[in-house]
């Protein structure tokens, strides 16, 4: 089943008098359970593309569908709700909240939910990424790899159908990167989650089902 369907998407930025075309008509689709990497030089439009799929930004033209539902023209409120229910984010800089423990960080996206199972689910997710003994540790007490694994657990708390990772191994050594990428492979395979990883890291491509190249706002493969 198609998790993401992007049709003829363009994105323009206005900088002063000039118009900059970051994405020049992108067609892309991704099935559930598929793990894809998007590579390309800096400024090629990778992050813009990821932001549009992640409903953090809107395309200038074209359409985006998630799980068969057109999400191109939603209000901010509705977009936020769909984002919360459907998409998990993983960032290069982890972006954990420093005042919260590992477990509280994982619970964060569901903090306003009245759901008794959230706590046990957060513990279970942290155990699964190998941090069962770090539940009460704060981010400054964790290594880079551990922080990224907390971020992965956080991205999974709402059982998303899509995971979007922006340079997930950018701040990790190769051994830790392998652990994280192993985890991505397992999530895609076992939980049928569609994963897109935007990266410069060639190591990532060894784990993905396919690799797409974005150059000057166009997909080249």
């Amino acid at each position: 089943m198609t998790a993401i369907e992007v049709t003829n998407v363009t994105k323009e930025y206005q900088t002063g008098e000039e118009t900059f075309l970051a994405l020049k008509g992108i067609d892309f689709s991704l099935a559930r359970g598929e793990f894809v990497s998007i590579m390309g030089p800096s400024g090629s439009g990778k992050s813009t593309f990821l932001n549009i799929i992640g409903l953090l930004d809107q395309p200038t033209t074209g359409s985006v569908s998630l799980d068969g539902q057109d999400v191109t023209e939603l209000t901010d409120r509705r977009r936020t709700t769909v984002r919360k229910q459907t998409i998990g984010f993983i960032f290069q800089d982890f972006f954990l909240i420093p005042t919260l423990s590992a477990k509280e960080n994982v619970e964060l996206p569901a903090i306003y939910e009245i759901d008794e199972t959230i706590r046990s689910r957060a513990t279970m997710l942290l155990e699964r990424v190998g941090l069962g003994n770090r539940l009460k540790h704060h981010p400054d007490q964790l290594s880079g790899g551990q922080k990224q694994r907390v971020a992965i657990a956080r991205s999974l708390i709402n059982s998303p159908r899509i995971l979007l990772a922006d340079e997930p191994t950018g701040n990790l050594d190769s051994e830790t990167s392998e652990q994280v990428l192993d985890e991505f492979t397992r999530i895609a395979r076992d939980e049928n989650v569609a994963i897109i990883a935007v990266t410069h890291d060639p190591q990532v491509t060894e784990y993905t089902d396919r690799t797409i190249e974005l150059r000057d706002g166009r997909l080249t493969s």
């Binding site: 992640g54 901010d76 936020t80 984002r83 984010f89």
Partner: peptide, 16 residues
């Protein structure tokens, strides 16, 4: 600012 951006990304509404 970034942290608030993350909260919005993971599903916090404006009113939250």
């Amino acid at each position: 600012r970034q942290e608030i951006g993350v909260l919005r990304a993971v599903g916090f509404q404006r009113r939250d």
